[in-house]
Design a protein around this nucleic acid. Structure first.
Length: 923
RNA sequence: ACGACUAUAGCUCAGUUGGUUAGAGCGCUACCUUGACAUGGUAGAGGUCGGCAGUUCGAGUCUGCCUAGUCGUACCA
C-alpha cells in the first residue's frame, strides 16, 4: 500500500465493480426500505445541494442495504419544462432563430436531442459521488409510462370535476408568454413611486384623488372605490367620474376592502389587471377591461395614442399626459413588492386568460390529516407548521403552461370550442360518442412540470398498473429534500399519492438546509462563489477554476471582481480531496435543518481522516499479513487492551445506529471519527505495539492482539462504509482474507452491517484502560509542561497505591514503560520518604517523577499552583452547594451524592498538591 | 403583519428529558521527523453560552421581554 491515500486511483474502478455486478438492485428480501430521489433537471448538472442530499440518501440506502433490508433507491430525472425549453430557445437565439421558426414539432424534437446530448451528465456526476440508486429503474418524467400515468390522473381528476378550465386572472409572464403558478412568482421589495392622480367627477362638482403604483393601468379602470364609512367621500358614492385620457364614465363605489388611512383613501379599480381589484369587480359586477396584449404591450382597448406601447413606456406617457392636463397631484417615492417570474426575472402581469386548474381543497384535506395524525413526520418537526400554514390557505393550482416542452394536456376541442377530455383522441371519440367527421383539435398547452413530479411516488412504481413494487415500496421510507420545494413538490406528492393510491407517499420527510459558501452566502454564479462538487473531488487548478466561474455570465462586468476573489481564496486552486472526504464533510455538517456553510478546511480535515484510516490499515497489515491472526483456529488470549477496544467498538456501533435512526448524521459522523482516530488509532494501535513486538508475550497473546487488530478494522470498515464507500471497500478487499469474516460478498457494500454484540461490552476492561490512559497522560502532562525531551526515559515512583492500582500495574507494567517512555517504575513504601518530585494523580495514587537534574523548581511550583487554583475553585463551589439547605433539601439524592463525591475527590487532590508544594518549596 | 429559525472558543458547529469542571474540528502556541500516518504525534492557551428579568435547590438548556440576523407566507392601491 502507498504511504498516502490516493482516492483518484480507486474510486472509478470501484464504482464500476459495484454497478457492473448489479449491487444496487433491491435484494427482494427483508423489510422494504425505499427512498425516492427528487428527480433533478435532466439537462442540469450536479451542484453542492445535490451532493449534500445525495450523500445523506446514499448513506441511508447503504446502511439499510447492509442491514439486509429490501432496499430500493428509485432514481430518475425531470423534464423541467420551462427551464429546459429556455435553454434550447437560447441556443436557437444564438443561431438567430426562434422556436416559431422551427414550429412545434421540430422544436420539441430539438429539445429531445438536447436531452439525449446532455441528459447523462448529471447521472454520471452522481456516480462520481458514489451514489447507489437502482439505475435499472431510472425513469424520466416524459417516458411513455410516466406520460400514461399523467394522462390517467388528468382524466380521472377531470371526470371527477377536480380539474376544470376557467377564464380568470393568472400570473402571466410576458416574456415567456405563459401562465405560471403562484409559487413561480417571487416578490422582492423594490424602489418605485406612488403617483397621485386626480379624477374629475362627471357632474363637475368636484374631483377625487387616487393613488397608484401603476399609473398605466388607469386605462383599464372600471371604478373608484372608497371605504363606506369614510366621511370625506360618503356623499360621492354612487356618482361617477370621467376617466381622464379615455373619457369613460365609471362609478364611485363603497367597499370595506379600502383602507381609509392609506394613500388618499381612494382606490382606482382595474379588475382585469390586479388580483384584489378582480375580486372587487366580481362583488360589484364591474366591467373587466383588458388593456394588454400577451407581451404586455397596450392593446386596442386603449385610446389610439397608447396602442402598441410597452407597459413601462406607456406609464411614462400617461404620467406626462396627466401632468399636462394638471391632473397629476404628486409623485412620492414608494417601496413596493414587485412580482417577478422565478425563471425569466421579468415583472409578472395579472392577466386574463383561459387556463386549466386543479381544485385542491378536497385533495388538501387528507394531505393535512396525514401530517396531523403523525402518519407522515417532518424531521425536524417544526416544518409541519410551514406545511399547515400553506395547506390551510391553499389556492387552486394553475396547471397549464403555454409551452411546447412538457406533457400535452389530454383535452380536445370541437369547432364550437366544446372541450372533451380523454387519454387520446380515439378514446375521446368513443367516450363522448363523437363521429369521425367532427373535427377535433388538441389543446395546445402543456402541464406544469410539477404535475408529473407530483405523481413520482406511485408513477415510478408502475401505476396505474397493479405492480408488485406498488405494494412493496409505497409508502417509501423517507424523503430527503430541501424546504424550498415543500409546496412545489412535497405537498403535491402527498395530495396526489393519497388520492390515487390511498397511501401516504413517504413516512418521514427529512428537510435539509441549504449549502452556502464559507461566509454563509448563497452560492450563485453572479457572486462567483459556486463550487462544483466534482472539483472538490478531483481538484482543479486556479486558472481552470477562474475560467469556470467567469464564463457564460449574465453580468460580465462582475468577472474581474470574481477573478480577484477566487485567486485570493484559492491561490493554488483546489486540491483533489476525493469523494469520501467530501461525503464525510456533508454528513458531519448535517445538523438538523441548519444551513451548511461549506468550508474547505473541513474537507481537508476529513481528507486527513481518510489518510489516517489508510495508514492504520498499513499498520494492521504490517502486523498481520505474514502472521497468524488466529482465524484458522489456535488459542486466542485477549489482552485488557483487546477487550477494551472490542467493548468500545460495540458501543460505537450502537451509538451510530441510534444516531442514524434519528437522522443525526452529524453526531453519527462524529461518533465514527472519534472512535477511529481517538480510540482505535491513538490508543489501541499504540497499545498493541508492545504486545505484537514483545519478546516475552506468548504466541496466544500475540495471536489475540493480531486477531483484534484485523477484525476490529474489518468491522470498522463496514460501519464507516455508508459514509465513505470507496476507501472502505478498497481496504476491505485487502484485509478481508486475513479476517474472520467468512461471507462470500463481492463487496463490502453487500456484506452485513455489524450487529451490536452486548456480550463484548466489558466494563472492567474499560475502567482498567482508563487507568492506563490516566497514568500515561499524567506523565505526558509533566513532560510537556516541564519541557522534558520526549526521547528522555524517565524513572517513576508510585505512592499511595490501592489494591486495584497494584493489580493494574502488575497487568500492564511492561506496556506502561513503552507507552510513557519510562526508564523504570518503582513502588514506594507507604512509610518511605519521597524525593522531591513532580507529581501526577491517578485516583489517589501518586505518580512521582524525581526532579533531580530534570525539573525546574519554579516551573513545577507554577504547575502545581495552576492545578491548586482550579481545585480550590471547585471545592469552594461544591461546598457552597452542599452548605445550601435548599439544595440538600430538594435535590435528588443521586445529585447530592455526586456532589459529595466530587468534593471529597477535589479535596483529596488539593491536599496532595499542597503537600507536594510544601515539599518542593523546601528544596 | 403573521409564522419559523438562529445567536455557545478567533472560525464552523455539537451540547438529548434542567444536575460533575460547557465539548469537537479547524486555526493558534510550544515541543517532537519515535519503523502506520508531518494529510502525523505530544502538551497547552482560548468561552461572564446575544442582553434583561423570571421559574427553580440548580438554567447554555424552561418562560417572558428586548436586541441582532436569516428564511417563509400574506400584503395597501
Amino acid at each position: 500500500m502507498e504511504k498516502t491515500f490516493n482516492p483518484s486511483q480507486i474510486e472509478q474502478a470501484c464504482y464500476q465493480h459495484w454497478e457492473s455486478k448489479g449491487m444496487f438492485t433491491p435484494s427482494g428480501q427483508g423489510e422494504p426500505y425505499c427512498i425516492l430521489l427528487p428527480p433533478p433537471n435532466v439537462t442540469g448538472s450536479l451542484h453542492m445541494g445535490h451532493a449534500f442530499q445525495h450523500t445523506i440518501m446514499d448513506a441511508l440506502i447503504r446502511y439499510h442495504r447492509m442491514k439486509g433490508d429490501n432496499t430500493l433507491w428509485q432514481c430518475g430525472t425531470d423534464h423541467a419544462g420551462i427551464a429546459t425549453q429556455m435553454v434550447v430557445e437560447r441556443q436557437l437565439n444564438a443561431q438567430g432563430q426562434t422556436r416559431h421558426d422551427l414550429g412545434r414539432e421540430k422544436f420539441v424534437e430539438r429539445v429531445w436531442e438536447w436531452k439525449e446530448e446532455s441528459g447523462g451528465n448529471i447521472t454520471q456526476q452522481m456516480r462520481r459521488l458514489g451514489t447507489s440508486p437502482d439505475w435499472d429503474r431510472e425513469v424520466f418524467t416524459m417516458d411513455d409510462k410516466l406520460s400514461a400515468a399523467v394522462q390517467e390522473v388528468f382524466v380521472q381528476l377531470y371526470d371527477e370535476g377536480l380539474i376544470y378550465r376557467g377564464k380568470r386572472l393568472v400570473n402571466w409572464d410576458p416574456v415567456l408568454l405563459t401562465a405560471v403558478s403562484d409559487l413561480e412568482v417571487v416578490s422582492e421589495e423594490e424602489d418605485g413611486s406612488m403617483w397621485h392622480m386626480r379624477y374629475p367627477l362627471s357632474d363637475g362638482s368636484s374631483s377625487i384623488v387616487v393613488a397608484t403604483t401603476r399609473p398605466e393601468t388607469m386605462l383599464g379602470d372600471s371604478a373608484v372605490a372608497v371605504h363606506p364609512d369614510d366621511e370625506r367621500y360618503k356623499n360621492m358614492v354612487g356618482k361617477t367620474i370621467t376617466l381622464p385620457l379615455t373619457g369613460r364614465e365609471i362609478p364611485i363605489i363603497a367597499d370595506d376592502y379600502v383602507d381609509k388611512d392609506f394613500g388618499t383613501g381612494c382606490v382606482k379599480i382595474t379588475p382585469a389587471h390586479d388580483f384584489n381589484d378582480y375580486e372587487m369587480g366580481k362583488r360589484h359586477n364591474l366591467a373587466l377591461i383588458n388593456i394588454l396584449c400577451d407581451d404586455a404591450k397596450i392593446n386596442d382597448e386603449a385610446p389610439e395614442a397608447y396602442r402598441g406601447l410597452d407597459r413601462f413606456e406607456c406609464r411614462k406617457r400617461i404620467v406626462a399626459d396627466l401632468d399636462a392636463l394638471g391632473l397629476l397631484v404628486e409623485i412620492k417615492p414608494h417601496k413596493l413588492k414587485v412580482p417577478r417570474g422565478d425563471r425569466s426575472g421579468v415583472v409578472i402581469e395579472p392577466y386574463l386568460t383561459n387556463q386549466w386548474y386543479v381544485a385542491v381543497e378536497s385533495l388538501a384535506k387528507p394531505a393535512i390529516e396525514a401530517v396531523e395524525s403523525g402518519e407522515i413526520r417532518f424531521v425536524p418537526e417544526n416544518w409541519n407548521k410551514t406545511y399547515y400554514q400553506w395547506m390551510h390557505n391553499i389556492q387552486d393550482w394553475c396547471i397549464s403552461r403555454q409551452l411546447w416542452w412538457g406533457h400535452r394536456i389530454p383535452a380536445w376541442f370541437d369547432e364550437h370550442g366544446k372541450v372533451y377530455v380523454g387519454k387520446s383522441e380515439a378514446e375521446v371519440r368513443s367516450k363522448y360518442s363523437l363521429s369521425n367527421d367532427i373535427a377535433l383539435r388538441q389543446d395546445e398547452d402543456v402541464l406544469d412540470t410539477w404535475f408529473s413530479s407530483a405523481l413520482w411516488p406511485f408513477a415510478t412504481m408502475g401505476w396505474p398498473e397493479k405492480t408488485p413494487e406498488l405494494n412493496t415500496f409505497v409508502p417509501s421510507s423517507v424523503l430527503v429534500t430541501g424546504f424550498d420545494i415543500i409546496f412545489f413538490w412535497v405537498a403535491r406528492m402527498i395530495m396526489m399519492t393519497k388520492k390515487f393510491t390511498g397511501q401516504i407517499p413517504f413516512k418521514d420527510i427529512y428537510i435539509t438546509g441549504l449549502v452556502r459558501d464559507e461566509n454563509g452566502d448563497k452560492m450563485s454564479k453572479s457572486k462567483g462563489n459556486v463550487l462544483d462538487p466534482i472539483d472538490v473531488i478531483d481538484g482543479i487548478d486556479l486558472e481552470a477554476l477562474v475560467a469556470k466561474r467567469t464564463t457564460g455570465m449574465m453580468q460580465p462586468q462582475l468577472a474581474e471582481k470574481i477573478t480577484k476573489q477566487t485567486r485570493k481564496q484559492f491561490p493554488n486552486g483546489i486540491d483533489p480531496y476525493g469523494t469520501d472526504a467530501l461525503r464525510f464533510t456533508f454528513a458531519a455538517m448535517a445538523s438538523t435543518s441548519r444551513d451548511i456553510n461549506f468550508d474547505m478546511s473541513r474537507v481537508e480535515g476529513y481528507r486527513n481522516f481518510c489518510n489516517k484510516i489508510w495508514n492504520a490499515t498499513r499498520f494492521v497489515l504490517m502486523n498481520t499479513e505474514e502472521f497468524d491472526t488466529g482465524n484458522a483456529g489456535g488459542e486466542l488470549v485477549l489482552s485488557p487492551f483487546d477487550k477494551w477496544i472490542w467493548s468500545r467498538f460495540e458501543r460505537t456501533v450502537a451509538q451510530f445506529e441510534q444516531q442514524l435512526s434519528e437522522y443525526r448524521f452529524d453526531l453519527a459522523a462524529q461518533t465514527l471519527y472519534e472512535f477511529t482516530w481517538n480510540q482505535f488509532c491513538d490508543w489501541y494501535l499504540e497499545l498493541s505495539k508492545p504486545i505484537v513486538n514483545s519478546e516475552t508475550a506468548s504466541e496466544a497473546e500475540k495471536r489475540g492482539t493480531r486477531h483484534t487488530l484485523i477484525n476490529v478494522l474489518e468491522q470498522l470498515m463496514r460501519v464507516l462504509h455508508p459514509f465513505m464507500p470507496f476507501i472502505t471497500d478498497e481496504i476491505w478487499q485487502k484485509i478481508k482474507p486475513l479476517s474472520a469474516n467468512v461471507t462470500n460478498a463481492p463487496s463490502i457494500m453487500v456484506d452485513a452491517f455489524p450487529t451490536f454484540t452486548k456480550s463484548l461490552i466489558d466494563e472492567q476492561s474499560e475502567q482498567d484502560i482508563e487507568w492506563v490512559k490516566a497514568f500515561v497522560m499524567g506523565i505526558r502532562n509533566i513532560r510537556g509542561e516541564m519541557d522534558i525531551a520526549p526521547s528522555k526515559r524517565l524513572p517513576v515512583l508510585l505512592h499511595n497505591m490501592h489494591a486495584q492500582d497494584v493489580s493494574r500495574l502488575a497487568n500492564t507494567q511492561s506496556y506502561l514503560l513503552t507507552l510513557a517512555k519510562l526508564e523504570s517504575i518503582d513502588v514506594l513504601d507507604a512509610s518511605a520518604q519521597a524525593p522531591a518530585s513532580a507529581t501526577a494523580l491517578v485516583g489517589e495514587m501518586e505518580i512521582l517523577i524525581p526532579m533531580a537534574g530534570l525539573i525546574d523548581k519554579a516551573a513545577e511550583l507554577a504547575r502545581l499552583n495552576k492545578a491548586a487554583d482550579k481545585l480550590e475553585k471547585d471545592v469552594a463551589r461544591t461546598e457552597g452547594k452542599l452548605n445550601n439547605q435548599n439544595f440538600v433539601g430538594k435535590a435528588p439524592v443521586e445529585v447530592i451524592d455526586k456532589e459529595k463525591a466530587k468534593l471529597a475527590d477535589a479535596k483529596m487532590q488539593l491536599d496532595k498538591i499542597k503537600e507536594q508544594r510544601i515539599a518542593i518549596e523546601k528544596m
